[in-house]
Nucleic acid binder design. Structure first.
Lengths: 216, 216
DNA sequence: GCCAGCCGGATTGTCAACAATTTCGTTGCC
DNA sequence: GGCAACGAAATTGTTGACAATCCGGCTGGC
């Protein structure tokens, strides 16, 4: 997800519209539940309505927008209850990834995880929640990657995209990084110890904490 | 010139095309890796190319077809390796559902599960693998439903759709129903005993068997 | 004989106009 | 004064035509 906004040369209009609209939603440029009128978007992005329409269909499949027959599209709002359900799914899927990563990751990859752990510890010590949140995301991405589980990876990316707004709120809660850090370190330790069972339980414990926090 | 299958009410063309094309793929009417030319499909289903195109985008998101830029669509072939990865995801997600169902299901719903269990036992005793496979599917559907986990349900439906071909082969393997039955009964027992932990481990044991069988 | 470049057919991507549907304000009636 | 039917505006769904792209085979030169 690094270099995505590249109009580049042969970039098809639909993909461009898709990328820009997606990023706009993820960055919060679109208010929750905002109506997405195809004509307006088409003019705004400089593409035709057909391209916007195709992009909207894609985004609907990703769970980012909601479309109702003959009634238009809106950015989907994720209720707290839904966020909990999504996080439960993330919990078991990332648990699977962590267990597989504990078995399949190379020694060099395990070293990467340890490095991330120290960086996260430092970020928390420095009281830098933004950096911590980024590292957090990076850690989870790496674990998924090391697991070699393409299917789980795909599902998790979809689920994560739906949670951007909630995650943002969560990271800024006081005291949260401290607890989160402990859980993450336990996860890293279990994976580097090549203990799949332990890695899975650590991930579950972490997400149980996230769910708790989501509910206030 | 088109004795359509009821355009029925105001069924939008795109949704109709989507449903019919999806069913055609799931029923195996389309050979694996078969090319899906938009024009042909449009004529075949009596809708315009735009509708087919929208349907194909949807089906791609569901993992049933594969689309390459300017090169067309084909029905996606799921390798054994992929089927294993998908089944691993199903394992953890259905485990989650079973655990939640053990807590949330009503007594009447639990009775339904018990009934399904006896029906499955009978089907195996009668040597009727087709009925057994149907009941099997029914059982899993019920558990997911009783869990109240809409997100997991949605993910599982998508994953299941990708496996139709493999599942079909699996059910006919000799000796498989017997082992599968045992595992299913254990799952039902744990859920009706309101034992979430036990339900999850039972589901996992079952899917571990499925994965084993998938690999030959 | 072999490779580079080109051309034709096929297929997807894009476009602008048209039709169908919904929504919301308005009018007429009770 | 409230309610129901009506109608106009807005928006999505659909259509057919056009442009861009890709694949295969062909030709020409070396």
């Amino acid at each position: 997800m690094s270099g995505q906004a590249r109009p580049s040369t042969g970039e098809q209009a639909k993909q461009l519209a898709f990328a820009r609209l997606r990023q706009a939603i993820l960055r919060g440029d679109m208010a929750p539940a905002q109506r997405l009128v195809e004509n307006e978007l088409a003019e705004q992005f400089g593409v035709t309505r057909a391209s916007i329409r195709a992009a909207l269909i894609d985004l609907e499949a990703q769970g980012l927008v909601e479309r109702i027959r003959n009634r238009g599209s809106r950015v989907r709002v994720v209720t707290v209850e839904e966020a909990v359900a999504i996080t439960e799914c993330r919990m078991v899927l990332e648990g699977l990834c962590a267990a597989k990563a504990a078995v399949l990751a190379s020694d060099g990859q395990l070293a990467d995880l340890t490095d991330l752990g120290t960086a996260m510890t430092k970020a928390v010590a420095d009281g830098d929640p933004v950096t911590y949140s980024d590292l957090n995301h990076e850690l989870h991405t790496r674990v998924r990657e090391f697991s070699g589980q393409r299917t789980a990876l795909e599902l998790l990316e979809r689920l994560n995209a739906q949670l951007v707004r909630h995650r943002f709120q969560l990271a800024l809660r006081p005291g949260r990084p401290q607890q989160s850090l402990k859980e993450h370190l336990a996860m890293i330790e279990a994976i580097t110890a090549r203990d799949p069972q332990g890695a899975e339980t650590a991930v579950r414990a972490h997400f149980a904490g996230v769910i708790e926090a989501l509910r206030h």
